[in-house]
Measured scan of single mutants.
Amino acid sequence: SKDAAQYVYDEAQKGVTQVTVNGVTFKFDNWQKLLKYAQKLLN
């Protein structure tokens, strides 16, 4: 959902490398990768 994507995006902006959405945890090597993933979700 857009809300989940926005949440992931906001978390990535904080510099975190993992985020949990609806009980599913996504882990990334660095926050830039998390940010890229979030941007994909938002598009």
Results as ranks from 00 to 15, higher is better:
Gly23His: 07
Gln18Ala: 07
Lys40Glu: 07
Ala38Arg: 00
Val21Leu: 02
Gln32His: 12
Thr20Asn: 03
Trp31Ile: 10
Asp29Thr: 07
Gly15Cys: 15
Trp31Pro: 01
Val8Ser: 07
Leu34His: 00
Lys40Val: 03
Asn30Phe: 14
Leu42Trp: 04
Leu42Arg: 01
Asn30Arg: 05
Gly23Asn: 03
Gly23Leu: 14
Ala12Phe: 12
Asp10Thr: 11
Phe28Ala: 06
Lys36Ile: 06
Leu34Tyr: 01
Lys2Ile: 06
Ser1Leu: 12
Ala4Asn: 13
Val21Pro: 14
Phe26Tyr: 08
Trp31Val: 02
Val21Gly: 02
Thr20Lys: 02
Lys33Arg: 06
Val21Cys: 05
Gln39Glu: 06
Gly15Thr: 14
Asp10Glu: 11
Lys14Asn: 12
Tyr37Met: 10
Gly15His: 09
Leu41Gln: 01
Val24Glu: 02
Lys36Gln: 08
Lys2Trp: 14
Val24Asp: 01
Thr17Glu: 06
Tyr7Leu: 15
Asp3Ala: 02
Ala38Trp: 08
Phe26Lys: 06
Ala5His: 04
Ala12Glu: 06
Lys36Arg: 07
Thr20Asp: 02
Lys27Trp: 15
Asp3Asn: 13
Thr25Pro: 09
Thr20Gln: 08
Gln13Cys: 13
Val19Arg: 07
Gly15Ala: 12
Asn43Gln: 07
Gln32Thr: 06
Asn43Thr: 02
Ala12Lys: 04
Lys14Pro: 09
Lys33Val: 10
Ala5Trp: 12
Gln39Tyr: 13
Ala5Leu: 10
Lys40Gln: 05
Gln39Cys: 15
Tyr37Gln: 07
Tyr7Pro: 15
Val24Cys: 15
Lys14Cys: 15
Lys27Pro: 14
Leu34Gln: 00
Tyr9Ser: 13
Trp31Gln: 00
Gly15Trp: 11
Val8Ala: 03
Glu11Ser: 03
Gln18Gly: 07
Asp29Pro: 14
Leu42Asp: 00
Thr25Glu: 03
Gln39Val: 03
Glu11Gly: 05
Gly15Glu: 09
Asn30Ala: 07
Ala5Ile: 07
Tyr9Ala: 12
Leu35Asp: 00
Thr20Ser: 10
Val19Tyr: 01
Val19His: 08
Tyr9Ile: 10
Gln13Trp: 11
Asn22Pro: 14
Asn22His: 13
Gln39Gly: 03
Asp10Arg: 00
Val16Ala: 09
Lys14Ala: 09
Lys33Asp: 08
Gln18Lys: 07
Val19Glu: 01
Trp31Cys: 01
Tyr37Phe: 10
Asp29Asn: 12
Gln18Thr: 03
Val8His: 03
Asn22Ser: 13
Gln13Glu: 10
Val8Gly: 08
Lys40Asn: 05
Lys36Pro: 01
Lys33Met: 08
Lys36Tyr: 05
Asn43Pro: 01
Lys33Glu: 09
Val16Pro: 12
Lys2Asp: 10
Asn22Gly: 11
Asn30Ser: 07
Ser1Ile: 11
Val19Gly: 09
Phe28Asp: 03
Asp29Ala: 07
Ala12Tyr: 08
Lys14Ile: 14
Lys14Ser: 08
